[in-house]
Structures are given as C-alpha cells and as structure tokens.
C-alpha cells in the first residue's frame, strides 16, 4: 500500500458516499444516470468475485464490501424507491449501455492476462469501468445545470483513477516485475474520459459560478 493508492481508495469511497448521501437525504437522483450506476455495480460484482476465495487484507475486504454495497443500493434507490425514482430523468438518460457491456465482454475474451473464468471477468471489469462514466457524461451534457453534489461525485470518481495511475508509477519503480499493461491502459483511458469534465469543473470553481 502507498499513499497514492490510499488516497485513490479514499477518493473513490467518498465519491460513492457523496452520491449515496445525496440520494438518501434529499431523496433525489436528479442529474444522475442510473445506467452508469448499473455499470459500476457490474464492475464491482465481476471484479470482486474473489472476495471470499482470496483474502488480501481486512482493508481490502472491507472496501470491496463498501463498493459492492453502495453501488447496488444506489441502483436500488434509483430503480425501486418511489420518491427517488420520481426524480430520475428517464427521458434524458438514454445511453445504450448494454452495448458497452457486450463489447467489453468480447474484448475481455480476446485480450486478457490469463484465460481463466475469474481473470477474464476481472479484465472485463477493467474495460467496463473505463467506459462506465459515459452515460453519466452524456446525461450531464443534456442536463442544463447540475447540482454541486453530482458535480462533486463525478469529480471524485474521475480523480480516484488518476491517483491510481500515480500508484502504478510508484509501484513500477519500487517493485520488480510490477507490469500490468491492461490495468494501466484502461486506467489511463478512464481518466482521460474525464478530461473535459475536469476542465469545465475547474473553470466553474475558478470563476465561482454554477457548473453547466
């Protein structure tokens, strides 16, 4: 564990907690794409399949449960909680995200480190996470202005993988044979997808005006 990875995990945890808090307290999911939340639930479900078979540390298991629990409860709130579901913007959240699932699955069957069930699904979860934010970014461009909590959620979510990139650089120089091209490339693509969001988020913060 290094400071970059810890910062990345904390940033990631705060992003999902900010969203869960927003939905739970003000009973609103305005501006939030349920498709991105469903994709993230699939990402965690397929990445953490080994949660019971290979124990890494208490921290690792605890964080996996946090991410699994939060992503599935966010989807549940947005789909089945009456008050929250009423605030869901079904007309605008129209990204065909199942195509993303299918193409990532095909890609994982083609490009992976080892051809085993767990490894292919783990690789699939990396590909899917890289593009999971797309429905949310598309919804963002359609929604006139977004509330601060949703903006903070996306900012933290985009930032966490950026911190992971620093972690990979650190581990590359401190651990022999630490080379994982698939993880690195998917992490880079994922972070780059947030580039223009970060730009507008920074502008709105600098000019102290609403993000739109």
């Amino acid at each position: 564990m290094n400071i970059f990875r810890l910062a990345g995990d904390m940033t990631h945890m705060f992003s999902v907690l900010v969203l869960l808090l927003k939905i739970h307290t003000i009973k609103s999911c305005a501006g939030v794409s349920v498709k991105t939340q469903e994709l993230y639930a699939i990402v965690f479900a397929t990445r953490y399949l080994d949660i019971f078979t290979s124990f890494v540390s208490i921290y690792n298991t605890f964080m996996k449960l946090v991410f699994l629990g939060s992503s599935f409860s966010i989807v549940w709130y947005m789909r089945y909680h009456k008050a929250v579901h009423r605030t869901y913007d079904r007309e605008q959240d129209t990204f065909r995200h199942w195509f993303l699932v299918l193409s990532c699955l095909l890609l994982a069957l083609l490009i992976h480190e080892k051809f085993t069930f767990l490894e292919v699904l783990w690789t699939f979860s990396l590909y899917l996470e890289a593009v999971a934010i797309l429905p949310q970014l598309v919804l963002l461009q359609r929604t006139r202005n977004i509330d601060n909590l949703t903006g903070q959620y996306i900012f933290l979510l985009g930032g966490y993988r950026g911190l992971y990139i620093l972690n990979w650089i650190y581990r590359y120089f401190t651990e022999p044979h630490f080379v994982h091209w698939i993880t690195w490339i998917t992490g880079l693509v994922q972070t780059l997808l947030y580039a223009d969001f970060f730009y507008y988020y920074f502008l709105s913060w600098k000019n102290n005006k609403k993000l739109n």
Binding site: H12, V56, N60, M63, F67, E175
Partner: peptide, 10 residues
Amino acid sequence: GSVSGSHDEL
C-alpha cells in the same frame, strides 16, 4: 492469500 501483483488492488 496467493494474489498476483495486480489483484491486490481494488
């Protein structure tokens, strides 16, 4: 546990 390098991350 026997985790390969990359699977010790979240």
